[in-house]
Simulated scan of single mutants.
Amino acid sequence: MKKFLLALSLLSLTGTAVSADVLSDRKALMKERGQLTGALSKVVKGEEAFDAAAVLATLQAMQDNGARLDIDALYPEGSNSGDTTAAPAIWEDPDGFKAAEKTFQDAVEVAVADAPTDLDGLKAKFGPIGASCGACHQTFRIRKD
Rank of each mutant, 00 (worst) to 15 (best):
T103Y: 01
E32D: 08
D118I: 02
E47R: 14
A53Y: 09
F97Y: 07
G82P: 04
T37I: 14
E92T: 14
P88N: 07
P116L: 06
L59V: 03
R33H: 11
A61K: 00
L23M: 13
Q35H: 05
L119E: 00
S79T: 13
A49T: 12
K42R: 14
P76N: 12
A28I: 01
Q35W: 07
N65T: 01
S24M: 12
F50W: 02
A115R: 11
A61C: 06
T85M: 15
K98Y: 00
G46C: 02
D64K: 14
L56M: 04
I71Y: 10
V112T: 09
F97C: 00
L69F: 12
A87G: 06
P88V: 05
A28L: 12
A61S: 04
A61T: 01
T103K: 11
P88M: 01
A89G: 12
V22K: 05
N65V: 03
G38P: 10
A73D: 05
A113C: 12
L59A: 07
A99H: 10
W91L: 14
A61E: 00
A87D: 12
G82A: 08
K98T: 14
L36T: 01
L59M: 07
A111E: 00
Q105G: 01
K102Y: 08
E47I: 08
L119P: 04
D93P: 03
D72C: 06
T58K: 07
A53S: 14
D93N: 10
K27P: 06
T117C: 08
T37S: 14
A53N: 10
M30K: 00
A67G: 15
A107R: 00
A115W: 13
D83Y: 09
G78D: 10
I90Y: 04
F50L: 02
V22E: 01
S79W: 06
D93H: 03
A87V: 09
L29Q: 12
V55A: 07
T58H: 02
P116N: 06
A99D: 11
G34Q: 02
T58F: 03
E47N: 11
L29Y: 13
D120C: 04
Q105Y: 08
E77W: 08
E109G: 12
T85I: 15
T103D: 12
A54Q: 10
E47M: 11
Q105C: 03
A100K: 08
G34K: 00
P116D: 02
K98H: 02
P94W: 03
A49C: 02
D25V: 03
V22F: 05
Q35F: 05
D95S: 13
D51E: 13
L74G: 05
G34I: 03
K45T: 08
Q105N: 15
R26L: 09
R68N: 15
P116H: 05
N80C: 07
L36Y: 05
G38C: 03
Q105S: 09
L74E: 10
A100S: 15
S41Y: 05
T117W: 00
F50V: 04
V43D: 00
A100E: 15
G82N: 06
A99T: 14
G66N: 13
T58L: 09
K42G: 06
